[in-house]
């Protein structure tokens, strides 16, 4: 579980996060949604330790991150997996080398053991016969799956995803969503996903945090989002005509 208390972050005179309070639950897919510029990416980067918050606390497993020693921070980073928006795969490495990289850098596993683990995770994300290919030689959806494989290869306790569906067709996006949800449940990990995709919200949104202008404006599950009267949330979620029709149908019990 991750608890965030009064998190604030500014860049020069621009206050991006203005006191965010929330919790992300273990074994669930936690979604952060919000308009562009609402502070989602900054929030995620604060959770990852890439940005140092100005004030407030982040608790990992009941322990405040800001009070961690350097060794504890390093230990925590080995328990984190991250799926970046663009994949962030290393161009000069093959798919196998990319997935093996965290094992090579952070563990004392032997080559054969690492290879077995890589095969296992590539199989889990349904990637076959791609081991020797370079990221530029595979499709966007496959790159995302390699990125997920790299993120979970070290059996993390926390999985973070920054817009994992961006640039993907709806079918591939649904495959990625389901894959992330299955991995979260199988491994009982805390998954935090930053997304704009309303399909993801309605498909896998077990705990949704809506950010607006750097503050949490609403929190609930995908079932609550149909019923909420919070205008900020409804204006954002039902901005598309399709989802407006879905909402009306839900309210009318169709």
């Amino acid at each position: 579980m991750i608890k965030v208390r009064d998190l604030r972050k500014s860049f020069d005179d621009l206050e991006v996060l203005k006191g965010v309070n929330t919790e992300f639950e273990k074994g669930k897919t936690n979604l952060i949604i919000g308009q562009s510029g609402s502070g989602k990416t900054v929030f995620l980067k604060c959770l990852l330790g890439l940005f140092i918050p100005d004030s407030g606390t982040i608790e990992y497993n009941e322990k405040v991150y800001q009070n961690f020693s350097k060794d504890e921070k390093r230990e925590l980073s080995t328990q984190m997996g991250m799926v970046f928006q663009g994949g962030a795969l290393f161009d000069s490495m093959t798919v196998e080398e990319n997935v093996m990289f965290p094992l090579k850098m952070l563990t004392k596993m032997g080559r054969a053991e690492m290879k077995n683990r890589v095969e296992e995770v590539l199989d889990r994300v349904n990637l076959v016969n791609t081991n020797t290919k370079f990221p530029s030689e595979i499709s966007g959806g496959m790159q995302k799956r390699v990125s997920i494989a790299r993120a979970i290869v070290n059996k993390p306790r926390y999985l973070f995803c920054d817009e994992p569906n961006s640039g993907l067709d709806p079918r591939t996006a649904a495959v990625i969503d389901n894959l992330i949800q299955e991995i979260t449940r199988e491994n009982d990990i805390t998954t935090v996903i930053n997304t704009h995709d309303m399909n993801s919200v309605f498909e896998i949104g077990e705990n949704i945090v809506y950010l607006e202008n750097g503050v949490k404006a609403w929190q609930g599950s995908k079932d609550n989002i149909y019923k909420t009267d919070n205008k900020q949330v409804t204006d954002f979620v039902y901005a598309s005509n399709l989802f407006q029709k879905v909402r009306i149908a839900q309210k009318e019990g169709l």
Binding site: G49, F84, A88
Partner: peptide, 17 residues
């Protein structure tokens, strides 16, 4: 610079490298 733009440097940092 390309590694910075494509978030590969962030990926290294997240891994604790």
């Amino acid at each position: 610079g390309t590694m910075r733009v494509s978030e590969q440097i962030d990926a290294l940092e997240v891994m604790g490298i």
